[in-house]
Design a protein around this nucleic acid. Structure first.
Length: 485
RNA sequence: GCGGAGUUAGUCUAGCUCGGUUAUGACGUCAGCUUCCCAAGCUGAAGGUCGCGUGUUCAAAUCCCGCACUCCGCACCA
């Protein structure tokens, strides 16, 4: 199974590994990126910046991870980002109170009701533990946000459960000072924190994780007025129908009504073009429109971008049309003005969000790039050259006869321009294979001929074929081959 | 959180049933030799709180108990 192979590669080659692993009290759901992981993550985010933030002239901010209580009162997370749970006094099993009650009595209680209502129904209907028939404890709320105490008085605040709240809260200032005009995208990359009950599968379900979020603010009356739509109208989207995945252009998707408007289609188009460039196999991807029950509490229309892996379909991006849910609740709570002028019209903008899970995306890049090349007895990470943690290995064929010194010279000249790895040790084939495993697209080898004519061989990772090139041309060749698209 | 299985070096693993010298092997890593191109060979070396903590015992990787983590299922996943 590829998940296990990727996991092994990650541990052996410094992509990612568990946090605090030397201590016995390390908690589940926390992982670290090692050197190769950081390198690929940085490049992935650079691609994201280029293909989304820069392309659409978005504004990027970097907000705090700890935010005050009011933010989450307004956002609804304190009330809604929690499940009502009830515990059996006998067998200690935990259940979701609302689901348990529906199953046992067919009484439907909205999940954000007062806790007494759950307890009352449980009492009235004499509901007991479905496992052991034991009696149930009082209903409690389990909020998935991490609470933190600020200062000596331990003032209540929270680690953000999604990065976007700072974008909403900062919106009035950003719009004014950055000379904003609708529609405008505001982007942010950073950590978010959720106290998951059962984190699992390394990077796929973390308690502390990276999000790259984009919130696009728009005039809700102009969702089909978008000149730049022509840029992506022929971009194809794979959209999950009731039964099957259909491939349509953005234009067709809007015309047929699969996507409600040009505005949403435009951003799904951008996202699709971005993921194409990450090297993830788009034939194993789909946009799935979420049903009423699956959607987040703030979403009006929601598409998940999902990718198929060896452990099933993974949700990489949540695309939610959040309407004015966030701005109006922050306006109400803070008493600040969030309306802006769009030409002559005063509007409270609506928001479409593209909320990307970075860790999961990176996993997919690794899994889809992982190749077990049995014929050549090697493992190859065939990822796009511009995402590779190491661009090029600089190798001496043998150490003696002055080749090591010559190799050092070549390395010295390119090490600040590319992520390069110098290696003199051991058999050449072994060194090539080590580079293959971390996805280095090129290996330059200095051999005896180099001393005569200043040429070297350059080996490409996927084909294993070699070309002989002049040392003075190396920089140009590598620039061209490792450049972002 | 529940149930099941597991945790021995960077990775994989033997040993555990039935407690007893210095914890086994492979791969990987490092140094040297060799080698003018794909995990070759030779020599040598480093690397372990046997997940953590208790208990039983003259003696615990091995037996008991507790905890943590990992994996699988259930539940959960704005």
């Amino acid at each position: 199974m590829n998940y296990d192979n990727v996991m092994k590669l990650a541990l052996e080659r410094g992509f990612y590994f568990p946090s605090c692993e030397v201590y016995g009290d390390s908690q589940a759901g926390f992982w670290e990126y090692g050197p190769n992981g950081v390198s690929i993550k940085n490049k992935f985010l650079e691609l994201w910046r280029q293909q989304l933030v820069r392309r659409d002239r978005m504004l990027e901010i970097d907000g705090s991870q700890i935010m005050s209580k009011s933010v989450f009162e307004a956002s609804g997370h304190l009330g809604n980002f929690a499940d009502p749970i009830v515990k059996c006094k006998e067998c200690k099993s935990t259940f979701r109170a609302d689901k348990l009650i529906v199953d046992a009595s067919e009484v439907e209680i909205p999940e954000n009701s007062d806790l007494n209502e759950f307890d009352n129904v449980i009492k009235e209907k004499a509901i007991s533990c479905p496992k052991c028939n034991g009696s149930l404890d009082n209903t409690k709320k389990f909020n998935m946000m991490f609470k933190v105490g600020i200062g000596p008085e331990e003032e209540e605040a929270y680690l953000r459960p999604e990065t976007c709240q700072s974008i909403f809260v900062d919106f009035p200032r950003l719009f004014k000072t950055m000379r904003g005009k609708l529609p405008i995208g505001i982007a942010q990359v950073g950590k978010s924190f959720r106290n998951e009950i059962a984190p699992r599968q390394s990077l796929l379900r973390l308690r502390e994780f990276y999000q790259a979020e984009i919130e696009v603010f728009c005039n809700p009356n102009k969702l089909d007025v978008l000149d730049k739509f022509s840029e992506i109208e022929n971009t194809t989207l794979r959209i999950q129908n009731e039964q099957e995945v259909v491939t349509v252009t953005c234009k067709q998707a809007v015309e047929s009504g699969i996507i409600p408007n040009k505005f949403v289609a435009y951003y799904l188009g951008l996202l699709s073009e971005f993921y194409e460039k990450t090297g993830i196999d788009m034939n194993k991807s789909r946009f799935r429109k979420l049903g009423e029950k699956e959607k987040a509490f703030y979403a009006e229309v929601a598409f998940d971008f999902e990718v198929e892996t060896t452990i099933g379909w993974l949700e990489l991006v949540a695309c939610n049309y959040r309407s004015d849910y966030d701005l109006s609740s922050h306006a109400k709570k803070s008493k600040e003005k969030f309306e802006v002028m769009d030409n002559d019209e005063k509007v409270l903008p609506h928001v479409f969000e593209i909320s990307m899970g970075i860790d999961r995306s990176l996993y997919c890049v690794l899994e889809h790039g992982y190749r077990d090349d049995k014929e050549n007895e090697r493992v190859v990470l065939s990822i796009r050259p511009y995402l590779a943690p190491v661009h090029v290995g600089i190798l001496s064929l043998v150490k003696k006869d002055g080749l090591a010194e010559k190799t050092n010279d070549v390395y010295l000249n390119i090490k600040t321009k590319f992520d390069s790895f110098l290696d003199h040790a051991g058999a050449i084939g072994r060194r090539y294979r080590r580079l293959d495993e971390i996805g280095a697209p090129f290996a330059i080898t200095i051999d005896h001929q180099t001393k005569d004519d200043d040429t070297v061989t350059i080996r490409s990772r996927d084909s294993m074929s070699q070309d002989r090139v002049k040392i003075k041309d190396l920089e140009e060749i590598l620039s061209k081959e490792t450049r972002f698209p």
